[in-house]
């Protein structure tokens, strides 16, 4: 097991390197550059050129990449082109809020999905099943911005019981209750989408297991139907779900671009969009590197967890 993990970690290095090169090329291929953003008409061409020179944008691409890479080796991700702050600092400030939002959304989503998925599998083709299936499709397909704006309109504007956005009330010291109130709507928007998907996964996965022989054996030896479904069947049905949850882990740090925009949540999704719009290359590179790393890490983690849950799987 341990040698396997070490081997996987070594494989990750060239993959990460490849990802950064591709990212670097794509980011630089996007038309426009940070200097084009200055719309102050009093800036002369020479001043714009000087600014490019200062940002290192006049160097050939491969040299820029080497600079970036050598800085990275020294643990320096560079400075943002729009705020001039160290990128590491900007990202560290954003990870917390995003993680908080995404983890809660995932948990709430799963907690909603689990019982509904089970019921809908057990009562396959019943009216209840059709109903929950309908609801889950609604959850999957409703756009986040639409649901978000709808909830804001209803809870913040009409009822005035929840805030319309942000992470805490500006000017207040931000007590716990205040933070919870700010979390409710964005978590709900994300959880609805997550729950919708997982109801489908859990239902499908459980249905596959419910027809298996060992369940007939379990019933034959006189176990209650509740135990059969929720213990024998569900345990095996959840194995593929673990893979799917594992694949969500990068999202926990990547953030939810649209929901964060709608609720002005100071997270990674918002940072990503703003960095793209302002062509903030160093921040974008760092965000991509982090996401690539998280994807690789999550895959490894999923594989490891798999071997614990399913004894048939062994790594050498």
């Amino acid at each position: 097991m341990v040698p396997y993990i070490i081997r996987r970690l070594f494989i990750a290095i060239p993959v990460l390197f490849g990802v950064t090169i591709v990212n670097f090329i794509i980011i630089n291929m996007a038309p426009g550059n940070p200097v084009d953003m200055y719309i102050d008409p009093n800036t002369s061409q020479e001043q714009l050129n000087l600014r490019k020179e200062q940002l290192g944008l006049n160097d050939p691409l491969w040299l820029q990449f080497i600079h970036w890479l050598s800085n990275l080796m020294h643990g320096n991700l560079g400075f943002s082109f729009s705020t001039y702050e160290p990128v590491t600092k900007i990202i560290l400030e954003r990870i917390g809020p995003t993680f908080e939002l995404m983890l809660l959304a995932l948990l709430v989503g799963l907690l909603i999905a689990l019982p509904i998925g089970i019921i809908s599998a057990v009562k396959q083709y019943s009216k209840l099943d059709y109903f929950t299936t309908g609801i889950s499709f609604f959850g999957i397909s409703i756009p986040h911005f639409f649901l978000g704006l709808g909830l804001i309109y209803f809870f913040a504007v009409k009822l005035q019981i929840l805030p319309a956005g942000g992470r805490s009330t500006l000017g207040s010291e931000g007590d716990f209750l205040d933070k919870v109130k700010h979390l409710i709507l964005p978590v709900l928007v994300l959880a609805v989408g997550i729950a919708g998907q997982y109801v489908r996964y859990i239902r499908a996965s459980l249905l596959e297991v419910l027809g298996q022989d060992y369940l007939r054996t379990a019933r034959a030896k006189g176990l209650k139907e509740f135990v059969v479904t929720n213990k024998h069947a569900l345990k095996n049905a959840l194995i593929p779900i673990i893979t799917i949850i594992g694949l969500e882990i990068p999202l926990l740090l990547g953030g939810a671009v649209i929901t964060e925009q709608v609720f002005q949540w100071p997270g990674m999704g918002q940072l990503t969009i703003q960095s793209i719009m302002s062509r903030d290359y160093p921040t974008l590179m760092a965000l991509n590197l982090l996401t690539a790393f998280m994807v690789l890490f999550a895959n490894l983690l999923t594989d490891i967890v798999y071997s614990f849950v399913d004894p048939r799987i062994k790594y050498k």
């Binding site: 996007a30 038309p31 426009g32 550059n33 940070p34 084009d36 953003m37 719009m277 302002s278």
Partner: peptide, 12 residues
């Protein structure tokens, strides 16, 4: 239609 940096570059 273009996003702003692209638009400005095409302008230049």
């Amino acid at each position: 239609k273009y996003d702003f940096p692209t638009h400005m570059q095409k302008g230049a």
